[in-house]
């Protein structure tokens, strides 16, 4: 039976193709929609999110972190923090999950063309940045200098380690890693992200900074960026807010008159300043 209008609450059932253990707390899931036509037609832009369901448990929001230029699967990286994420972590290749995607807006990657890009990611906040970064690396000539500062609590909390190695090697981007607590083997920085950011001191000239991470990290990173001379329009962030419907109806995710599920999750600092401070 088809319903008219389309049922925005009904997930597409999908099959997990591969599970990658990124860190003790983070797993990456590569999934394909069971309906081949829907999978074929699926398109999204970097920054957009999806609602993943473990049917019988519930739904939560995760960034689609496969680059849009690679279409064989959809990828989500999930940090285990509570009920649903713990259940997701028990799933294996072949298991079924529900997917409602894509939802939300995207990074303004068009207006970023020709500019220097500074990525600042903390913990699982690296997931949305990764999509945009991979997109830019796939279209490398269109962007200026790319700097990545990626921080985690400790070396074994760094997700995407297989790619981080590659990013460190590349000479068309500058990658800096930092952890709060080092180990004897750790060869990179030790220190909080905002401090390391000030140390690297990227120039705000024709640049855009994109940051994502825990709220407290975003707060101090934004301050550091401002100290470095980045203007409100030059600071882009992606917010986490509890979501339910994901389509602007249920009233869960608003900050003032803006609904993170449809007007976000990507905002410039200039946009956020117009809204009540409910980060």
């Amino acid at each position: 039976m088809t319903s008219n209008p389309p049922n925005v609450y009904l997930p597409d059932m999908a099959t997990i193709q591969e599970v990658i253990q990124e860190t003790p707390a983070i797993k990456t899931f590569r999934v394909t929609l069971n309906n081949a036509d829907r999978m074929q037609a699926f398109s999204f832009e970097p920054g957009q999110v999806g609602q993943l369901s473990v049917i019988g448990v519930g739904e939560s929001t995760f960034v689609i972190n496969s680059p849009p230029t690679r279409k064989e699967y959809l990828q989500f990286s999930v940090m285990k923090v509570g009920e649903l994420t713990s259940r997701l972590h028990t799933l294996k290749a072949g298991d079924q999950i529900g997917v409602r995607a894509p939802l939300g807006n995207a990074f303004p990657y068009d207006s970023m063309r020709g500019r220097d890009i500074v990525f600042v990611g903390g913990g699982i906040g690296m997931a949305p940045l990764r999509t945009l970064l991979l997109y830019m690396l796939d279209n490398r000539a269109e962007y200026g200098k790319i700097t990545l500062l990626y921080g985690a609590r400790s070396p074994h909390d760094m997700a995407f380690s297989y790619e981080v190695e590659e990013w460190l090697q590349r000479d068309d981007m500058h990658t800096v890693l930092t952890v709060d607590n080092g180990t004897p083997e750790w060869q990179h920085k030790v220190g909080l992200i905002p401090n390391i950011l000030k140390e690297i001191g990227p120039s705000p000239e024709n640049a855009v900074a994109v940051t994502c991470g825990p709220p407290i990290m975003i707060k101090f990173t934004v301050q550091a960026l401002q100290e470095l001379g980045f203007g409100d329009e030059q600071i882009v962030t992606t917010l986490e807010k509890r979501m339910k419907c994901g389509v602007g109806i249920c009233g869960r995710c608003n900050i003032g008159s803006s609904y993170v599920c449809k007007d976000g999750p990507v905002y410039t600092l200039a946009q956020l300043k117009e809204l009540p401070g409910e980060m």
Partner: peptide, 16 residues
């Protein structure tokens, strides 16, 4: 008009 969404399982079946 705000609402919550939750799942109610009963064995192998259930509802959202």
């Amino acid at each position: 008009y705000c609402f919550n969404i939750t799942d109610e399982p009963h064995g192998d079946s259930g509802k959202r």
